[in-house]
């Protein structure tokens, strides 16, 4: 126990300041003012891998490390879509995951948002469209924000998430 406490003391706090939101990441549809008003900056995220290579998942995991400290910003990953405000989707949507993705989206309470993360989620990436892949997430469920990258870095993911929750400022809410 002493060694554990000493290690915690030795390392201290390494968390860094979050990035600024970037309205350019937003897709055409306007985010409703009241959504931002209801949630403020507290957000529950349900992540769904709809067919990724697992590279995006590595960087999404990194959001929870002490440097990015996502929970410190009031944002956390939840286990059930019933508890989620935001669906964070990776991968080209494989045909085998299409139903599961739609059901997850439908299980979320309103109001809800969707971020498509990674080149594959944005445009199908190197896998594209085929007998096995539907391509971009937006082809299967409505998407609010896209975060490109292969894989997208944690700061890019964080910027995408904060772009959503800062909608209040942009829309005058």
């Amino acid at each position: 126990m002493l060694k554990t406490l000493m290690q915690i003391g030795r390392v201290g706090v390494v968390s860094e300041a979050p990035p600024a939101p970037d309205p350019a990441l937003r897709l055409a549809q306007a985010l409703r003012k009241e959504i931002a008003r209801v949630f403020g900056r507290a957000l529950a995220i349900r992540q769904v891998d709809a067919g990724s290579c697992n590279g995006c998942e590595l960087e999404i995991h990194a959001l929870n490390n002490p440097y990015y400290n996502l929970e410190g910003l009031g944002i956390k990953f939840v286990a059930s879509p019933r508890h989620a405000d935001l669906l964070l989707v990776t991968g080209p949507v494989s045909r085998h995951m299409e139903i599961a993705l739609k059901r997850t989206y439908e299980a979320m309470p309103e109001p809800k948002w969707v971020i498509a993360a990674g080149d594959c989620g944005c445009n199908g990436g190197i896998f594209g469209e085929s007998y096995a892949s539907r391509g971009p997430v937006a082809r299967v469920i409505p998407v609010d924000v896209q975060v490109p990258g292969c894989p997208p870095e944690p700061l890019a993911l964080l910027r995408g998430i904060l772009t959503l929750v800062s909608a209040a400022a942009d829309t005058g809410g």
């Binding site: 891998d49 067919g51 990724s52 991968g91 080209p92 494989s94 085998h96 995951m97 599961a100 896998f127 085929s130 007998y131 096995a132 892949s133």
Partner: peptide, 8 residues
Amino acid sequence: YTHKGIEK
């Protein structure tokens, strides 16, 4: 579930 036709 994540079969995306990589060999093809």
